[in-house]
Design a protein around this nucleic acid. Structure first.
Lengths: 416, 416
DNA sequence: GAGGGAAACTTAACGAGCTTGAGTAAGGGG
DNA sequence: CCCCTTACTCAAGCTCGTTAAGTTTCCCTC
């Protein structure tokens, strides 16, 4: 029998994967190879076999198919003691996809390469009182214009990813309620309609999840990391990617970060809850407080009577806070404390090690929120859980959802 | 001290089967069939094909193997217009497994049938200053006694599930810190040692996750539901089961329900955080408040100087609250408000529709916590998200972890 | 109490996808 | 030039699940 010593060392004894280990039935060879190619720079077949756990023979045949499909290219060789390795990578000139971000005010369309590079961009805005049918028509025309103007071949485009705010299955808009799609159209109906009209496969996804997948794909996040994209737009959401695949929940409503309860006695929220993060410290709440305070209002140059846009107004407050406006700074810092607390709950419940701040809200304010979140999550994570939580800011927070939508479609389509 | 009593296996009532749509590449036929058989009462092969999405041919061959393995039995037939259907179910006299709950004070061992019925039970307690090697020996002897005493054939037993408190990778015990295993042994080392000594496969799992899997298996939770088991022992944890498989997180630290932040300005927590649920409203916090208040202390008959056990003291406070002790009731209700708020965060982040209260803490207090949680999660869920959150209490909260550990091992072993 | 019909299984052939094991290609060093 | 090393490929075969064509077992009718 073995001798045991009772000092519970915290060093990396491998956690038993227990029942989580599946002998088979994981993602197929093609999917695994694509994920490895996405995350690494140029890699050889031997390395791919090591990374994915597939046999070299299997890698060889699957890679041949990827080469034939024009998804992958050979880009060089590394000398070895024997035959040199052939390096492979995703072909930047391979397939493309369109991403559409259906914002509350403007619609952003991008055409991206399969490596996440933006090839063309187009912005339009909804005319007043646009009907659902008109919306679909406008989007179809935008996509047409985008591809025409880019000079890219249309056969290369695999489809369209479509981003909308709010949860998947919208409820009847409660007052001050969830963002939803313009025209109040069900995301699924809009998706089907656009697919019908354009003839391209269309995938619909909520903003936070799309941003997370985009980050995963474009910023080459390691598949081993479990991470969340905190998304601030009109509200607050979290897109969660675990072991390389998006976690949406049974009804596609997982990651409702804005409805983490941060104050048991807090104000009522439109969702029916009380003390939700969004109601206490979301962008709309910050703007409301700024509007109520003459000093803050002046600092942020908020017109009392002008047309309101939560994202725009919040950005103005954040800018004022950064520029030294004391009243605005106090408002944003108060908000950041709550957001940081909710982020800690998120990290502890999902066992995350990476948070990415993204979306238009954080684009303007990440320098204020980032440190607060880092401070809060760092303290407990390292001390009690032996994990390091990295907090980063998306490199292009404003276009993240559109690029993410395109990435989502690519990930879905390339795998087959 | 060792007590042994044998009970007959208690098999539950039939539950109507619900069709589950799965895409390809999921778990294999055998696993899917076992899950369907677990969740339903007697089912025919045709129904199994409909439930699992497998073809009838595939069901036929896989079922034959399960029959040969002695896992499944034919139990009757239903008349049809043609050949009657042969009904199948898991054989209650088929395989068995041992579950060990390594509590802070007492160790509970159970022998269960593969349908979750408890065939025999044994309780022992650690002698003072027990070394790690002695612990392993004691557990091995307990298992031996349990199986001997039960009269069950040892070849039927597939292995041992082992439950410990706290996260998978224990940190050096902080003051008032995480529970961890007795003797401070790393769960993985303990698992390996017990496996070595007994010769049976051993699976180690944290208490909340084990309780969740046990609930899933024994209470026949529908695989389509996403649910969490809220576990109250010395601390608070959540075991999360999504689409039929436990969600553990990258480091096995997911579901740290006790470290959801419920008060940004709250007291410091041993984890390094601030305002964590456990620090604000966990059982230890409730007990500490009761001890500090002479009235509550009298109501709960807490000895000022006696040996302290968080679970025992908390149960006493909960009993006093139920019996009408006003001071204790106020303490527990204050705690329940926070737990309910954290539960709402959990539900919103994971998109859950079922919460099960379990563990020794809730065994004594579910009648006080249950309604508070139901009230809070019900309001927002139905109004904004179009989902109904069911809150139930485990039928045998005190033995849930041990039974869950056995279920976990069964689920893992039967699938191969 | 045969013969048909209906529905529940069963069997056989096949195919996708991956593995094993034995090649073949491509470079370097003596 | 030969030989060694290492990268990659080919061929056979295995596992699992599918499709399609039986086979069994009941009830019902004549």
């Amino acid at each position: 029998m073995t001798t045991l010593d009772s000092t519970g060392g915290a060093e990396g004894a491998a956690v038993p994967a227990a029942a989580a280990v599946r002998r088979r039935g994981g993602p197929g060879a093609r999917e695994r190879l694509l994920d490895a190619l996405r995350a690494s720079g140029p890699v050889s077949r031997v390395e791919l076999a090591a990374i994915t756990g597939l046999t070299e023979a299997s890698v060889s045949t699957t890679v041949r198919r990827l080469l034939q499909d024009g998804v992958v290219v050979e880009v060089g060789r590394t000398p070895t003691a024997g035959k040199p390795r052939t390096l492979l990578q995703l072909d930047p000139g391979g397939r493309t996809a369109v991403g559409i971000d259906l914002g509350p005010v403007t619609t952003t369309c991008v055409l991206t390469s399969q490596t996440g590079g933006v090839l063309a961009r187009l912005t339009s805005s909804a005319p007043p009182r646009e009907s659902a049918a008109q919306l679909v028509d406008r989007l179809a025309r935008d996509v047409e214009t985008l591809i025409e103007g880019s000079g890219e071949r249309r056969e290369r485009c695999l489809g369209i990813g479509l981003v909308y705010g709010g949860p998947r299955r919208g409820s009847a808009a409660a007052p001050g309620g969830p963002p939803g799609t313009p025209g109040g159209l069900e995301p699924e109906l809009l998706r089907a309609a656009l697919q019908e009209v354009t003839g391209w496969p269309v995938l619909a996804e909520n903003d936070a999840t799309a941003a997370a997948v985009g980050e995963y794909w474009v910023a080459r996040v390691d598949a081993a990391r479990s991470f969340a994209a905190l998304y601030m737009g009109t509200g607050l959401g979290a897109g969660i990617v675990l072991a390389g695949s998006a976690h949406r929940g049974a009804r596609g409503q997982a990651g409702e970060f804005g409805h983490v309860v941060v104050d048991v006695d807090g104000p009522p929220c439109w969702c029916g809850g009380q003390g939700c993060l969004e109601a206490v410290a979301g962008p709309a709440a910050v703007v409301a407080r700024a509007l109520a305070d003459p000093v803050a209002r002046a600092e942020a140059h908020l017109e009392a009577g002008g047309p309101r846009s939560t994202v725009g107004d919040f950005s103005a407050v954040a800018r004022a806070a950064r520029a030294g406006g004391g009243a605005c700074r106090a408002l944003v810092e108060a908000s950041a404390r709550y957001v940081a607390a909710a982020a800690e709950s998120l990290v502890n419940l999902f066992d995350l090690d990476l948070l990415v701040l993204t979306g238009p809200g954080f684009a303007a304010s990440s320098s204020l929120y980032g440190p607060a979140i880092t401070r809060r999550t760092g303290a407990a994570a390292s001390r009690a859980w032996g994990r390091a939580v990295t907090v980063t800011v998306s490199s292009a927070a404003a276009t993240a959802p559109a690029v993410g939508a395109a990435a989502l479609l690519l990930q879905d389509r390339l795998a087959r």
